[in-house]
Design a protein around this nucleic acid. Structure first.
Lengths: 209, 209
DNA sequence: AATCAAATACCACAAAAGAGTTATTTAAAT
DNA sequence: ATTTAAATAACTCTTTTGTGGTATTTGATT
């Protein structure tokens, strides 16, 4: 019954039903074993410390923090941790950030279970894995855009219904500078106006709801 | 092993892992039985026809159509169908639409499994169920707003970065009328400008990404 | 029959946003 | 040491958005 070298998996997700599904899937594989579960970022780190799993499946939306930040906190302590982001499709910005921050894989919850376990095995074997449909979407917004931190700040202010003058006051810059930032934002996001810029940014995960 | 009167459940969700989780949960109850699964709206209706389940658990985001529309298509043919919306939190507009369209319950995927099966039993017993946290949020935006169909159209146009003049042309009305609609939209959504109106509308599920 | 909400439209005015150009400072990268 | 990217700012001018008020038509509701 017991395998020699099982892949020990930690699952981090705030949906109990998803946990059950992952547990059923992983434990059905002869070469895998779900060793722990966490439903928020803080306990994810605690569980990781205790069980030191081979693979961590990490959801992006957690109640206490972003899944990427949870991953970063794990990687800081355990640089060799192999974290796979497992989420429903979010914006390309999240994916880029995840990969840049050290994720070894990115999987969609809509993928068939067989694909999911394949990815777990691939990543456990030391490879990285991003599914083709995500890679394609990533390539689309790769070379060109990417907002600077300041531009993202300005964009968040716009989404809250602030006028340029108010944004200027809040960020301690002139209204003219705000306009320059907005111009760059619209150019990068290929938006006609500030309103479409916000809509696009929300869709692509640049700003959160 | 077999119970006398089991609650026969159909699960509609496009996440295979969620299906597994639901299956595990339902089949673990002595008084319930998962009789069928569907991953899109079209097959949900087909499965319903074939199995005529007591309870249908319906996700809102499906690949081919909105879960509410899938529910409506089922209710048209089977007016006594008991459909429970099971989803992660969307905007209050979706919830209102679901309940108005005949949903018997609304559950969040973040709820503990024990709560979920309780709701299934309650709805099967003929009661309706909306969790308190949702009911509270619903009350907040109840009396006041609710955009008219035309206002929603205008709002969608705004979100696409169209100017008032363009919106007027597309909807075959004058620019002045567009302005009136936008004024009403901003008043109802309590937005400072068109941009915040779009952000709020996306958050509340009035317009989709 | 009377009332009400929704959609339509016009006018005038004020406020804000956006386009185009130029320029300075600082920090990072080569 | 030089180049580059980011952030800052000013100026002008045009376009767009937003505010306030008034008014008409139509379809529901009472």
């Amino acid at each position: 019954m017991k395998e020699e070298k099982q892949i020990r998996v930690l699952s981090v997700d705030d949906h109990p039903l998803m946990h059950e599904g992952i547990a059923a899937l992983i434990n059905n594989q002869t070469d895998m074993n779900l060793v722990a579960e966490a439903s928020d970022g803080r306990s994810a780190l605690l569980e990781f410390r205790e069980h030191q799993p081979d693979i961590t499946l990490m959801d992006l939306r957690l109640p206490d923090m972003n899944g990427i930040d949870a991953m970063i906190s794990i990687l800081k302590e355990f640089p060799n941790a192999r974290v796979i982001i497992l989420t429903m499709f979010e914006g390309d910005v999240e994916i880029q950030r995840a990969l840049k921050s050290g994720a070894r894989g990115y999987m969609l919850k809509t993928m068939p279970p067989k694909e999911l376990v394949k990815v777990v095995r691939r990543v456990h074997a030391g490879k990285k894995h991003i599914p083709p449909e995500i890679a394609a979407n990533l390539a689309e917004h790769f070379s060109n855009d990417a907002l600077t931190p300041r531009e993202t700040e300005v964009l968040a202010q716009i989404a809250e219904g602030n006028r340029n003058r108010d944004i200027a006051e809040r960020l301690f810059i002139s209204e003219e500078t705000v306009k320059v930032h907005i111009k760059h934002i619209m150019d990068k996001l290929d938006a006609n106006d500030r309103t479409q810029a916000v809509a696009i940014a929300i869709r692509r995960g640049i700003i959160q709801l």
